[in-house]
Amino acid sequence: MPGGTVWIDLYDPSPEEVAQVEAETGLRIPTRAALSEVETSSRLRRLKGGLSLSTPMITFEQADSQLKPLGFLLTKDHLVTVRFHDLRAFGSAAKRLTEDEGGDPAVIFTILLEELVDSLADSLEEMAVDLDSLSSRIFDFDVRGPSAKRLEEPPPRRRDLALRRILRAISRRGKVLGKIRASLLGLERIMPFVSSACEGLELTDDGRFETIRRDIESLDEFETRLAENVQFLLDAALGLINIEQNNVFRVLTVVSVVGVPPTLIASMYGMNFKHMPELDWAYGYPYALTLIFLSAIIPIVYFRIRGWF
């Protein structure tokens, strides 16, 4: 590495790269398994002359979200970051350092935290827009295309497919919010630990740390509101599904009720008794058919007037 290197960014490093950095800096680079530990004592540790920090961080790869570990080794002379996925915050931080920021390890670490928080804020803002669009789809549920007739009702299969898609969309956004919350929680734990352990590391810009902490708190509240919105949309979608199911059961109920009187009449006149008043009547057969027809039509008209279908 060039002399005077301050920030070393290990992106999915090979064993040879890890060995080289350890030889150059004298630091022990944690493995991916070590960075994935969930105990606070494993994620936030004091080193000889520095700090070892790790947090899960959300990443979006191929339209899917994943949580992967992100590690920091901070000393007076070096900042080593260990990551296993691409994060746009690192590109933004490198650009800021190139343009107008200094090269002190503590300053670089602070810039990285700022960019990570800003990246999570952008993700939450995008999520808010997605949830607003999803809310319109749910409360204005209509799968008819623009060329369909106004009174044309979509077939049940299309309506079921639309509802399935809505539920999948809610599920995806709920999972993303959970991973964003895990990322915010990891950063939120880092802030007080670094502030209390910064003696000798020249982390003197407490104002920037306090600003980052307040930003994380505000994002945490914003994420909570979005999570409540997701739960509300899920309840609304389930309510919509219940309405669709009730419509089906209502139709089945009407059909069953309409079929009972004709069945009763047909079964009565189908009895093989010798002495039946209508047996020798010339108009007995049309009379029975008329009764069957009227007994089916009258319930349909009644239910139609009542607005059942």
Rank of each mutant, 00 (worst) to 15 (best):
G3V: 07
T5A: 07
V6E: 12
L10G: 00
S14K: 09
A19V: 00
G26W: 05
L27Q: 11
I29A: 13
R32F: 08
R45K: 10
T59Y: 05
Q62I: 07
D64R: 12
D64S: 06
S65G: 13
V80M: 06
V80E: 04
T81H: 14
R83E: 07
R88V: 15
F90T: 12
R96P: 08
L97S: 08
G102L: 02
A106E: 12
V107E: 14
L120K: 01
A121T: 02
A128P: 02
D130K: 15
L134D: 01
R137F: 01
F139E: 03
F139T: 00
G145K: 11
L151F: 13
L163H: 04
S171N: 04
S171C: 04
R172E: 01
K175G: 14
R189I: 07
P192Q: 08
C198R: 15
T204V: 13
G207D: 11
E210S: 14
I216G: 04
E217H: 00
L219D: 03
D220C: 01
F222K: 13
E223F: 10
F232K: 07
N246Q: 03
R250I: 08
T253S: 15
V255L: 14
Y269D: 00
K274D: 10
D280K: 15
G284I: 05
G284K: 09
Y285P: 11
T290Y: 02
L291K: 10
L294F: 15
I298Q: 14
F309M: 11
